[in-house]
């Protein structure tokens, strides 16, 4: 190893074979995700499988090509923190969309098929006993 004579070699320097092995694994995973997408799995699974394979490939690139495996320390923390914010942003925004009253989302496949709500669907729980069903949330009647 030519840098053996230098005392300031920063960290263990692995051979080129490891990069080729990672490249083979990345190619195999790409073929895998291509084949999995042709299987027509069910609605949640095709997306989950594709994203899991993409995450595995990204992990290989980050750990070996980007040397996070060899270089301990704060770089890992920085990258992991950015991933936490990715999960927060996408996760919370999706939760927001998924838990909205349908008509609060912009017009889409589901809302365009949405039957106009009848008068009764606006009745809140327990409201009927108070005399005027459907009053909560309805704009005041104009004379």
């Amino acid at each position: 190893m030519p840098n053996g004579e230098h005392q300031t070699a920063l960290e263990p320097h692995h051979g080129a074979g490891r990069y080729v092995a990672v490249w083979v694994a990345l190619c195999a995973l790409t073929v895998g995700t291509l084949l999995a997408s042709r299987l027509s799995l069910g609605p949640p699974w095709h997306l989950l499988v594709a994203l899991a394979i993409a995450a595995a490939k990204a992990g290989l690139v980050a750990l070996f090509f980007m040397h996070l495996w060899d270089q301990p320390g704060v770089n890992r923390l920085v990258f992991a923190t950015s991933l936490v914010f990715v999960a927060l942003l996408i996760g919370l925004v999706l939760l927001d969309s998924a838990t909205r009253f349908p008509l609060a989302n912009p017009p889409n496949e589901r809302t365009l098929r949405f039957e106009p709500p009848s008068f009764e669907t606006h009745v809140q729980p327990g409201e009927r006993e108070q005399g005027e069903p459907g009053a909560i949330g309805r704009p005041p009647a104009r004379e």
Partner: peptide, 11 residues
């Protein structure tokens, strides 16, 4: 690109 590929081409 590893994430763009499945999301745009494979889903």
């Amino acid at each position: 690109w590893i994430f763009l590929y499945p999301l745009l081409y494979l889903i």
